[in-house]
Simulated assay, not measured.
Amino acid sequence: MARVVVLDYGSGNLRSAERALQRVGAHVEVTADPKVALAADGLVVPGVGAYAACMEGFNAVHGARIIDNRLAGGRPVLGICVGMQILFERGIEHGVLTEGCGEWPGTVERLDAPIVPHMGWNTVRAPEESKLFAGLDSDTRYYFVHSYGVRQWELEPGEIIRPPLVTWATHAKDDFVAAVENGPLWATQFHPEKSGDAGAHLLENWLGTL
């Protein structure tokens, strides 16, 4: 049984993530203890709310250091919703710029759509070689609830040997990053823990990499 830590930094939908991971067979612990987070087979970084508030809580538990140390050892990390957004360089909300973790270049900004937040079920466009979406049809829908996202992928393929796999979604003709697979670092803008059978299948795919 895979041992998974859901990182508690005060800004996540912790219990929903815990229950969803338990349902697909993981042993789950919710904690802010860095030693436990580093030792786990997999680490989940959830996130709900404002970017700046999430980064404040994340920094308080030395979240960036935990992620960097795990990635240095090739140990899987999964970011969810704002837990994905804080992996990028920066976020801008209400004119306030907040520095993120910088695992990927890019800016989290308000969606350019007549109706915000984007709330409900949406399809995504995943690369054929995706492991995260393996076994899931292209018309499968996932649950989103967010007003901000990464609308431009800034990492050029020529900058690294093996570029990340980027999955996109569209809300009111506005494209945004829906998921990223980058070695042991994966992330989703949508909530797999709220996406029913599709979300459970996706979490099983992630657990299969641990």
Rank of each mutant, 00 (worst) to 15 (best):
M1G: 14
R3Y: 02
V4N: 04
V4P: 00
V4F: 00
V5Q: 02
V5G: 00
V6Q: 07
S11C: 15
G12F: 02
G12T: 08
N13G: 12
N13L: 11
L14K: 14
R15G: 06
R15I: 13
S16H: 12
A17S: 15
A17V: 11
A17D: 05
A17E: 00
E18F: 03
R19N: 12
R19C: 12
A20V: 09
A20D: 04
L21G: 05
L21V: 07
R23A: 10
V24A: 11
V24K: 09
G25F: 04
A26C: 12
A26L: 05
A26K: 02
V28P: 02
V30R: 09
V30D: 07
V30G: 02
A32F: 05
D33F: 02
K35M: 05
A37Q: 03
A37S: 11
A37L: 02
A37N: 12
A37Y: 05
L38D: 12
L38C: 07
L38G: 05
A39L: 14
L43P: 00
L43Y: 06
V44K: 01
V44N: 05
V45F: 00
P46T: 05
V48H: 15
A50N: 12
Y51S: 10
A52Y: 06
A53L: 14
C54N: 09
C54G: 13
M55A: 09
E56G: 13
G57M: 09
F58Y: 13
F58H: 07
N59E: 14
N59W: 07
N59Q: 15
N59K: 13
A60H: 15
H62M: 14
G63N: 10
G63L: 06
G63Q: 04
G63K: 00
G63W: 03
A64C: 13
A64K: 15
R65D: 12
R65K: 14
I66N: 02
I66K: 00
I66H: 06
I66G: 01
I66M: 10
I66V: 15
I67E: 00
N69G: 14
R70H: 04
L71K: 03
L71Q: 04
A72I: 04
G74R: 13
G74D: 08
G74F: 01
R75A: 04
P76M: 09
P76S: 08
V77F: 03
V77I: 01
V77Q: 04
L78M: 12
G79S: 13
G79A: 03
C81D: 06
C81I: 01
V82F: 09
V82A: 08
V82W: 00
G83N: 08
G83L: 04
Q85P: 11
Q85G: 11
L87F: 11
F88D: 07
F88C: 08
F88W: 04
R90Q: 12
R90M: 08
I92N: 12
E93F: 13
E93T: 13
E93Y: 14
H94N: 15
H94V: 12
G95D: 11
